[in-house]
């Protein structure tokens, strides 16, 4: 008796696995197509992770990753990062700039997507949409050049208008008061159209009968946006928010490295630019890796937390 119970248990434990295998086999063509992607992830995202150990080692080129001596104490490079006199400033700069970009960067894209959706003149919509995501493909160097042409204190167009109108010129690019605003606004300019694409796709996925029914009932356009469009893309907004929170420790190295100068270090120096100056320029790869690990750990925790929070409103990713 006892034996037979044990056997049935074993069977029930095995059968879901087998069932899963049968399911996978049934769709083997799809899984085969997925395979290259999985391999890519494994080779380029998971394998290199073993290099993370150099954040606990005194890494040098000759000995390589495996044979470099262990750091003494093991948290040496973490300590070096936390002990930097600029640590707290770097953290707050990174978080603030990220947060500004998150808040002020998402709203305009959503609004733009809704405007596109409401636009009834098709050729205009198409043209404006194409133009709006063009800046996304410009590199930050070019955008910096454009910013200088407009906002330079001596030669910029905007400052020329200001001085001609009788005001005194404003150092948009070289003062602590303006620097973050410049970062956020250039980022918005660059990515507003690109960001709108996802929302626009989400909006076009909303069942059109909802709009028709509302129209029949005499709802105004604003009402429809409020009660149909926005709730319809709520999940996408939450999804993107969670994804972006995961990279909150990346405040945009490429942009800031091009834009900043010693006068605005105070408000513009972020973790990544610091790592660039200390880690790469001084060839201290262990330190650079340590900071990367630290950032990823925080990002990971934040994503998990945000997802849990989102689930309460029924919108988590998983």
């Amino acid at each position: 008796m006892e034996e037979s119970i044990g056997m049935t248990r074993n069977k029930t434990a095995e059968s879901p696995l087998r069932q899963a295998w049968i399911r996978i086999w049934g769709m083997r063509a799809l899984y085969l197509m997925l395979l290259p992607c999985l391999i890519w992830y494994f080779v380029f995202k998971y394998l290199p992770m073993y290099g993370v150990i150099i954040s606990f080692k005194d890494y040098n080129f000759t000995d390589g990753i495996l044979h470099s001596p262990w750091a003494d104490p093991w948290y040496k490079y973490f300590k070096m990062f936390f002990d930097s006199p600029y640590f707290s400033q770097l953290m707050s700069n990174t978080l603030l700039i990220s947060l500004y970009k998150l808040v002020f960067g998402m709203l305009p894209s959503i609004i733009l997507a809704i405007l596109f959706h409401e636009c009834r003149v098709m050729w205009l919509k198409r043209w404006v949409q194409t133009l709006s995501y063009m800046p996304h493909f410009l590199s930050w160097i070019i955008i910096y050049g454009i910013s200088v042409a407009f906002f330079s204190e001596t030669t910029g167009l905007v400052n020329r208008w200001i001085t001609e109108a009788g005001g005194s010129s404003i150092p948009f690019l070289g003062s602590t008061e303006w620097f973050r605003s410049m970062l956020v606004s250039t980022e918005i300019w660059k990515d507003i159209g690109w960001g709108a694409i996802v929302y626009l796709a989400a909006i076009s996925g909303i069942d059109p009968t909802l709009f028709e029914a509302a129209r029949v009932d005499g709802a105004s356009r604003l009402r429809m946006i409020w009660h149909i469009t926005l709730p319809g893309i709520r999940n996408v907004i939450i999804l993107l928010l969670i994804l972006k929170i995961g990279s909150i420790m990346d405040a945009g190295f490429e942009q800031i490295y091009v834009f900043y100068n010693p006068r605005v270090y105070e408000v513009g120096d972020i973790i990544d630019t610091w790592v660039y100056r200390t880690g790469l320029e001084q060839m201290n790869f262990s330190l650079a890796t340590t900071v990367g690990l630290f950032k990823s750990a925080i990002g990971f925790v934040l994503v998990l937390g945000a997802n849990k929070l989102a689930k309460r409103w029924g919108g988590g990713i998983w």
């Binding site: 380029f44 394998l47 290199p48 073993y50 290099g51 150099i54 390589g64 990753i65 990346d250 945009g252 190295f253 490429e254 490295y257 990544d272 790592v275 660039y276 880690g279 790469l280 790869f285 650079a288 890796t289 990367g292």
Partner: peptide, 16 residues
């Protein structure tokens, strides 16, 4: 992704 990470990753992969 930022450049530092990319380079570090590259260095690590190749070194690997």
């Amino acid at each position: 992704k930022n450049r530092v990470m990319a380079w570090t990753a590259l260095a690590m992969t190749v070194a690997l």
